[in-house]
Nucleic acid binder design. Structure first.
Lengths: 332, 332
DNA sequence: GGCTCTATGTCAATCGGTTGACATGTTTAA
DNA sequence: TTAAACATGTCAACCGATTGACATAGAGCC
């Protein structure tokens, strides 16, 4: 495997000059630059990132910890992160914690060992005291973490409002909000607040609330809980589900009870992942700007690395995507 | 950030001895080991993987290139890879190529630069000549790559047979096989062969074949193609879809045509990802042992790193999971 | 002619580990 | 008793870059 020294010899230059070309430092003539590039190509030179990171005291990798990627929301997120990272010349170190605190702490340690350029936390259970003075910036994604250096969220409150308005627009009067609540309070919790507040502003709207246990989020199986829920509230005519996956499962539960969507019950999901277009009918949902959120996370880390200023908190706009599950006669 | 030298000083030992403890080399007394561990804990020492990799000429990261992770099959795969990798003390470097050759080559270069312990290729478009003498083992996952050092697949032919048998068992006589074909020939192509061969062994079975273009696999949108397909073959009573996502979309297409599943049409999917339990009815499917396949890939890399022998080709068994989409009256 | 800018070279330290050679003791077992 | 096994130390080279100090020398300008 060719080294810088080999390239220098091949180009008839010193390592110092070649390193200057690679890192764009000091004065280099166009001729020399070409010469170096030619030599690198000829030797099929690939810089050793380990050596580079060691001397720079910082690698070009970004660590991301997520609870799962089986959930389509997180797979979409990771895909966006990967793209954004590589656009900024970073590589992505992926960690899946399954929501287990021990793993999360292990993964934070792995990030330290790898001297990552930054860490994006998409999971809330890490003991926050351990996030101080890590030597790299920590970005909290849709989590409330005081210890993080920055936070990126979408406007969950607004999302709740949009969902409520849509159901009310469709003539629903007997609303149900299904959401998951973990042990940690999360930005997503305020979706419900937005929903409830918007409902309260209208006359004659009944609202119920059902809490799906999210401890088994990695299972993606809520069906039995949703069945119980429908036993409790058999006469709802509009449901706001806090994720498209829950909404999709609800479709199955309703279908087995002979309820038709959207004729008998209207549904609004959340996230706008591919599942919402896979179901029959497809799902009206609140679109999260996942790509933009991912880009923001990466950009914060880039800025921090270059000692540029960056926002402590970024809240991005959501919007409603109307599909079959809230279609009414007059929409045709 | 504490270094090995700091730990040695704290423990009153030499760096050599501490390094021995870390790498389990030579003779170390239990007392010294404890002493070192205490010192490491006290200083909150995290070994610098960059330095370690540099001197070992090999990092403890495994690179994985996939075409997408939005597709539930790949997100399940990556989740399994991540788990298997960390169980063997590797970190995972994730690359999503979107099926673009230029990105794949860029990612292979990134793996070289990071001196990965191994590379798992879940995508077939890389120009194979570039995979020789990379300095680390390359494992082809569900791909035919002569240049790879090892291949891991599931028994796709058997999967096709199982699907055919199930549809025939349900009394279907007019079968359709929907599969995707890319430019590169892949192990998954033989699913069709298994299906067709099994059908040929039965009297009075008609078989059709429809080829879904997979160029837009990252889109996960096959609906319009499937609609055409149903125009072409309106009277099929049993369908084998080469992925659960296609099967799920087909459910929607059939529903909009007033066809009921499983009463009018029976469906068998492939993969056994969560989507198959999300639909109504849920999908009978061919289960791929993704976890075991992932573990096999990681194990091959571990063996290669330790100069142990490893199999050049591993083919894992699949099995049928019966659910609602092929349920008949007598199954009740 | 002196000054500054451009372009490159030499040299050595540094990043934080790993590893091997070699030395020096202390136990333990044959 | 004596060799082998155990336990640790010292020292230095090495992995492949980055970086800064300092030197050299030609080009362009006042």
């Amino acid at each position: 495997m060719a080294t810088l020294k080999d390239v220098a010899r091949e180009a008839g230059l010193s390592v110092g000059t070649v390193s200057r070309v690679l890192n764009n430092r000091g004065y280099i003539s166009e001729e020399t630059r070409q010469n170096v590039n030619r030599a690198m190509k000829k030797l099929n030179y690939q810089p050793n990132e380990m050596a580079r990171s060691l001397s720079k005291q910082r690698s070009s990798m970004i660590g991301v910890i997520v609870p799962t990627i089986s959930h389509p929301y997180f797979s979409k997120l990771i895909e966006s992160m990967e793209r954004a990272a590589h656009q900024e010349e970073y590589d992505l170190l992926l960690f899946v914690s399954q929501g287990r605190v021990d793993r999360e702490e292990e993964y934070v340690r792995a990030c330290i060992s790898n001297r990552v350029a930054g860490l994006i936390l998409c999971t809330g259970s890490v003991r926050t005291a351990r996030l101080k003075n890590l030597g790299f910036p920590v970005v909290a994604y849709e989590r409330l973490l005081n210890e993080a250096d920055a936070g990126v969220e979408c406007d969950n409150y607004e999302g709740g409002i949009l969902a409520a308005q849509e159901l009310i627009r469709c003539g629903c009067r007997n609303l149900l909000c299904i959401s998951g609540i973990g042990e940690v309070s999360m930005p997503a919790d305020v979706r419900r607040d937005g929903f409830m507040d918007a409902c309260a502003r209208h006359e004659g709207i009944r609202t119920q609330f059902f809490c799906c246990s999210e401890e088994r989020i990695t299972d993606l199986r809520y069906k039995s809980q949703l069945d119980e829920c429908m036993d409790l509230y058999p006469d709802v005519d509009g449901v706001f589900a806090s994720s498209d996956v829950i909404a999709a499962e609800l479709l199955g539960v309703l279908s087995s009870r002979g309820k038709r969507v959207p004729e008998d019950v209207k549904i609004v999901g959340y996230d706008d992942v591919f599942v919402s277009e896979l179901t029959t009918p497809d799902l009206t949902t609140i679109h999260q700007p996942v790509q933009e959120m991912a880009r923001t996370c990466i950009d914060i880390i880039r800025r921090a690395s270059e000692n540029e200023a960056f926002p402590a908190r970024t809240v991005l706009r959501v919007n409603l995507v109307r599909r079959g599950s809230t279609r009414t006669a007059q929409d045709e």
